[in-house]
Nucleic acid binder design. Structure first.
Lengths: 145, 145
DNA sequence: GACAAAAGAGTGCATATACACTCTTAACGT
DNA sequence: ACGTTAAGAGTGTATATGCACTCTTTTGTC
């Protein structure tokens, strides 16, 4: 199998990124009935859990660049799933879910659970947990060095 | 730590993608002296190993969409690190490294080894191998279902 | 209180990603 | 040989990603 190319050399970066492409397609397909993509689901979910977060803290929670977040919010704003509100400090912008956003999130959560379940079932619960741990440490390592 | 948000729910897709962002930044920085990015290194490396591959087989080897590959080749073509040649079958396009491309690849390989070594050292050799295995299976799972 | 420094956030540019669609050329069936 | 089908690859559009730079507002210093 040619797919083993760079993976044959054991490049963690390549392996993770290739897997990320597969994950994106997998979750995008699973969440399509809700009208959002995988990254957008993670975004809505974070906004819901953090309750009116600022851009900076939201970006950090998601582990993505602040400027990437700004642009990723755009299509969700267009769909009216969330709105940006100015804070008391007028430099700040807070992200708030709309009712439509909450409804979409709720629908997406059910779809996510099914999709997630299939992966965990296929990989095994222990191995899934272990993989999450390994990825967390790898990510931390890459940011340290 | 807020970073645990969606990861707290153990979403494999989110964890892999967040890790991919970190890997991209890590390897991009490490390879900067060679003038290329992480994805471009993987691409050059694959072209080198496959020897004059067609678009289809190269895309499959890298686990990325055929149309993504077309565009990812563009900046490397501009830098004259590779060229596209028509095949005997004139529908086909073969990718070939230039001398400059080979030189860049060689330089990048040394930088990659150092960067890779730091990650493997930090994570441990056994755990690194295990992580690669887990990612391979996860990727296969996502493509199956 | 005025001015410099710092914090919060957006833009310009470039790459990465892939689906739907189109174009060109080869293979095939009669 | 001709027309249909299939194969190989590129484009249009949209999202994802982040660095360098800029803009606005607040904080801090005197």
């Amino acid at each position: 199998m040619q797919t083993a190319l760079a993976a044959a050399q054991g490049c963690l970066g390549f392996a993770v990124r290739r897997s990320a492409r597969a994950m994106a397609q997998y979750y995008d397909a699973a969440l399509a009935p809700a009208g959002i993509k995988g990254t957008q689901f993670a975004l809505l979910n974070a906004v819901f859990l953090l309750e009116r977060p600022g851009m900076q803290s939201l970006a950090e929670a998601l582990g993505m660049d602040r400027t990437t977040l700004t642009r990723n919010l755009r299509p969700l704003e267009t769909q009216a799933l969330l709105v940006l509100q100015a804070g008391a400090d007028r430099r700040e912008r807070h992200v708030v879910l709309t009712e439509a956003g909450l409804a979409t999130l709720t629908a997406a959560q059910r779809l996510w659970e099914q999709a997630h379940g299939r992966l965990v079932h296929g990989l095994g619960a222990d191995r899934s947990r272990r993989l999450l741990d390994d990825l967390r440490d790898l990510t931390a390592l890459a940011k340290d060095v």
